[in-house]
Amino acid sequence: MEAIVAEDVHFSYDGLQPVLNGVSLVVRTGEVLALMGENGAGKTTLVKHFVGLLKPRRGRVLVFGVDTREATVAQLARRVGMVFQNPDHQLFAETVEEEVLFTLRNMGVPPHEARAICDAVLREFDLARYRDRSPYSLSVGERKRLALASVLSYDPDVLVLDEPTAGQDYFNKSKIARLVNGLKRRGKGVVVVTHDVEFAAQVADRVALMAGGRVVREGPAAEVLTDAQAIAAARLTLPQIPAAAAILRERGVKLSRIPLLPGGLYAEVIALLDGGAP
């Protein structure tokens, strides 16, 4: 199902310098879309349109069929939850626990349920021991996780995560990856804006590459993330496993495909060994 539809979206902050130059893109439920591309490409600007924080100057954005110009940010937020690139932009409560409870209250979750949900998400994100601390006394990675916890707590239909893995180690990253995959299985639509090609390789079904305010390439993750030329043009690097596989191919090793993840590469190597000499 189409959750968010951007149609020929044009935008400029000052009315002079164009920042989005006709972006068309669809976010579907039950799917993870990774939005990638060089610094300043327009990714954050685009996803701010998905929650109505910015409105297109030309073109339109539909959220479950509703034009974002015809809805308030609060209405849109119930269906589309956003984690900002800088978590400090969305943390303001006195304590970690209050932060989550406040969001839940705001979204109309009854108090007796809110308590249990809050406990669960704080545990999930390894923040339970900080429940009485000020969000500002947390480490940066912890703050990012709190922002994530707070948005996930009210279970919106679509999640827009702007650089969710910035400041996270591999364990936390894998945890976030599992979480994103879980959301998808539950039929949520997920947009991740990320520079982290390894993370994208783990979670994305589709990848859209942006440059200069345009989507310059869009397709299945397995195609886009292994396309050396498209990746380089977007100032990304190939994920490590496709990069290693590409070198093997260059050296004449016959791989049946370019795998995205370590397990895939391992399977290719085993197949070569079983099949005798390369």
């Binding site: 591999y170 364990f171 990253k173 370590p262």
Partner: peptide, 21 residues
């Protein structure tokens, strides 16, 4: 890696090492 996890090349290396390759 015990504390922060592994980059993918290290994961691939470990898979091959566990097979004794």
């Amino acid at each position: 890696s015990r504390l922060v996890g592994f980059p993918p090349v290290v994961v691939a290396h470990q898979l091959l090492r566990n097979r004794g390759l």
